[in-house]
Write a protein that binds this DNA or RNA. Structure first.
Length: 257
DNA sequence: TTATATGTTCTTGT
DNA sequence: TACAAGAACATATA
C-alpha cells in the first residue's frame, strides 16, 4: 500500500536489510519492471557495488550506490520488499537483489511500479515533475497551492503540487481536518487551510510511527473503517462513498463540511 | 460475472 | 492554459 508512509517504512526496511552489503547478483523476472534502463546496464552498474544510504521523495525511494549512482524504486499500487534467506521465491517477485546474507525481493503483483537508475535525484524529480515532499513542504508553498482553482482532494493528491499523498491518506487527512473532499480550494478560509496543513503532517508522521499498519491505527481514524456501510468513528453516522477522479473516496458528510 | 483495488500517464472534453 | 474525466496498464478478490 505504497503512499508516503508506506514508502518510508520500506526505506527503513531496506536500510536494515540491504545497506553496506555487496550486491552479488540481480535477477529480473518481468521485463516491465525496469524503466528507462536496460537489464544489461542495470547489471553493469549494480554488480559488486554496495548501497550506502537512502532517500525518499514523495512515493519514490532512492538507494545511493558506492559508485555515485542511485537505484530508484516506485511501488505502484501493489509493490513491496521482502528480504528472505532461503526457500522459494516469493510470489510476484519481479526483481531481486542477491547478497551473501540473503535476497531482497521487489514484489509487485500488478507491475504498476518499477525501478530505474539515475545519477541525480534532483534531475529525477524535475523530469517526473514532482512537487515538494509532503513532509518537507512549508506553509507558504502549501498556501500557494491552495490558491489555484480545483477540487480539494484531487489537489492534495496531485504529485506535481505535493509529492507523497495518495488516495487513502488523502481521505484520512481530510477526515482529520474535517473538510469535505469536494470543496473547492478557493473556498477554504485561512484557518481551514492551516488545519489541513497541520493535519497532513500529523497524519503522515503518525502513520510512519506505526509503520503504516492499519491494525495499529487509532480508533479515531477513518482508515480502519474505510469501507462501505461502516460508521464514522466520530459521530457514528454512516460513511459515504463517492467516486472522485475515478478513485473511491470515503468521508463522513456529517463531520466533513 | 461485475465491481473494486493504495499509482501514473495518456487522451479527450470543457 | 488549466482542469475534469476516463481509460489503460496486470492481477486478485469479494
Amino acid at each position: 500500500m505504497p503512499e508516503l508512509p508506506d514508502v518510508e517504512t520500506f526505506r527503513l526496511y531496506f536500510n536494515k536489510k540491504a545497506l553496506n552489503r555487496e550486491i552479488l547478483a540481480i535477477k529480473v523476472f518481468h521485463p516491465k519492471v525496469l524503466r528507462q534502463v536496460s537489464e544489461k546496464k542495470a547489471r553493469q552498474e549494480l554488480l559488486h557495488q554496495k548501497f550506502k544510504s537512502t532517500k525518499r521523495h514523495g512515493k519514490n525511494l532512492f538507494a545511493a550506490l558506492s559508485n555515485g549512482l542511485y537505484l530508484c524504486f516506485h511501488f505502484g499500487m501493489t509493490g513491496s520488499f521482502l528480504f528472505y534467506k532461503k526457500g522459494n521465491l516469493p510470489p510476484f517477485t519481479r526483481f531481486q537483489i542477491d547478497f551473501k546474507e540473503g535476497h531482497l525481493a521487489y514484489i509487485d503483483m500488478r507491475i504498476l511500479g518499477g525501478l530505474t537508475i539515475t545519477d541525480s535525484i534532483e534531475d529525477f524529480i524535475e523530469k517526473k515533475d514532482l512537487g515538494p515532499d509532503a513532509l518537507s513542504i512549508q506553509w507558504d508553498d502549501f498556501k500557494t497551492i491552495l490558491k489555484r482553482k480545483g477540487t480539494l482532494k484531487p489537489t492534495l493528491m496531485d504529485q506535481s503540487f505535493i509529492a507523497g499523498v495518495g488516495n487513502i491518506y488523502a481521505d484520512e487527512i481530510l477526515f482529520q481536518a474535517k473538510l469535505n473532499p469536494l470543496r473547492n480550494n478557493f473556498s477554504l478560509s485561512l484557518k481551514e487551510a492551516k488545519t489541513l496543513f497541520t493535519q497532513m503532517k500529523k497524519v503522515l508522521k503518525k502513520a510512519i510511527a506505526i509503520k503504516a499498519d492499519v491494525n495499529q491505527m487509532s480508533k479515531t481514524w477513518l482508515l480502519p473503517s474505510r469501507k462501505t456501510h461502516e460508521n464514522c468513528p466520530r459521530c457514528k453516522k454512516e460513511i459515504k462513498r463517492i467516486t472522485l477522479r475515478g478513485r473511491g473516496t470515503f468521508f463522513c458528510p456529517h463531520c466533513q463540511k
